[in-house]
Amino acid sequence: MSLTLEHYLLLSAALFTIGAVGLVTRRNVIVLFMCVEIMLNAANLALIAFSRFHLMADGQMFAFCVMAVAAAEAGIGLAIMVNIFRHKKSLLVDDLNVFKN
């Protein structure tokens, strides 16, 4: 049995679901960010699988752009998290409640 497009798509769907479920259930902001990154990488996997399937490089090029952008996003996101930790001494979303009052 060989690996086909379907296998890659199923793996990507599984990764995407893991990320989405984690986003809903986890409480630590860094873990939340990791969940979003897993979702992005699931999307990348699907892109590359389709790109290989059609033998066209568009999808792979897009995946590279996504990685570059994800790195920039991580830079901004981690900076914001450091800032939050300075204020709160905590990284749990339950403590993010300044707007409640």
Binding site: V36, M39, N44, D58, G77
Partner: peptide
């Protein structure tokens, strides 16, 4: 940031499925 990043992930995943039509 978190919701925006989630939006980006959904966008890329959606585009992946459309790319699946022709590879473009």
């Amino acid at each position: 940031f978190l919701l925006g990043a989630l939006g980006s992930a959904l966008l890329v995943y959606g585009v992946a499925f459309l790319t699946g039509l022709t590879g473009s």
